[in-house]
Computed example of a mutant assay.
Amino acid sequence: MSISKIRIDFWLTGDLFEADEVSEILQIEPTKFKRKEEYPLPQTALTSWKLSTKKEECKAVCWQFEKLINLLKGKEGLIIELCEQYELTASFTVVVEMEAGNGPELVLTKDIILFIAAINAEVGFDLYID
């Protein structure tokens, strides 16, 4: 059996905003930025600024989550301001690739939950099971 592979994505999504401005304010370059016009159905899409960890073999979701939060820690106020100013939504996606019966520990620690709450973010889970 192989170890699960985990990646965590942090998203700022909204109708229209500029990646450069968000990156400058947060002092972080995104992993990916995509304008809503670039999606196949722009009328239902949102512009997205994404910061991701590398997909790595890992036995606990919290280990990858902590890597991403360490990059964002201390910027909670800036994230809230960006969300208010540009009507953005902050969210995290936990992506897990695993074999059936060999999944990682899916625990969000108190510190992770406090950070998520501090920036008024949501969390989603994408599980890919072979």
Score class of each variant (00 low, 15 high):
Arg7Asn: 06
Glu24Gly: 07
Leu68Ala: 07
Leu114Ile: 06
Ser2Ile: 08
Lys36Gln: 05
Leu127Ser: 13
Asn102Phe: 12
Val107Ser: 13
Gly101Trp: 05
Leu46Pro: 02
Phe17Pro: 08
Lys34Met: 08
Lys75Asp: 05
Ser48Phe: 01
Glu37Ser: 05
Leu78Ala: 11
Glu122Ile: 00
Leu12His: 12
Cys62Ala: 10
Leu68Trp: 11
Thr44Asn: 12
Leu16Glu: 06
Glu76Phe: 01
Leu16His: 09
Ile112Gln: 14
Tyr86Cys: 07
Gln85Thr: 13
Ile113Asp: 13
Leu82Lys: 00
Gly103Glu: 08
Pro40Thr: 10
Glu87Leu: 15
Leu51Asp: 01
Glu122Leu: 13
Ser4Leu: 08
Glu99Ile: 09
Cys83Lys: 15
Thr13Leu: 12
Pro42Ile: 07
Phe92Tyr: 14
Ile119Met: 06
Arg35Ala: 06
Lys67Glu: 15
Val61Asp: 08
Gly77Trp: 00
Ala121Met: 02
Glu56His: 06
Leu127Phe: 14
Ile6Leu: 02
Ala60Cys: 01
Leu41Trp: 10
Glu99His: 13
Arg35Trp: 05
Lys59Phe: 03
Val107Asp: 15
Tyr86Thr: 00
Ser91Met: 04
Trp11Arg: 05
Gly101Ala: 05
Leu51Ser: 07
Thr89Leu: 08
Glu18Lys: 05
Phe115Glu: 07
Gln43Asn: 14
Lys67Asp: 08
Leu106Thr: 02
Ser52Lys: 01
Ile69Asp: 07
Glu24Leu: 02
Ile25Cys: 03
Leu51Cys: 11
Ala121Cys: 03
Trp11Ser: 07
Ser91Arg: 05
Lys55Val: 04
Leu108Asp: 11
Trp63Pro: 02
Asn120Leu: 04
Lys75Gly: 05
Glu56Gly: 02
Trp49Phe: 12
Asp126Asn: 06
Leu68Cys: 05
Thr31Phe: 12
Gly124Ala: 10
Thr89Glu: 15
Phe10Thr: 03
Ile28Tyr: 03
Glu97Met: 09
Glu24Phe: 08
Ala100Arg: 15
Asp126Lys: 02
Met1Asp: 13
Glu18Asp: 11
Ala90Tyr: 11
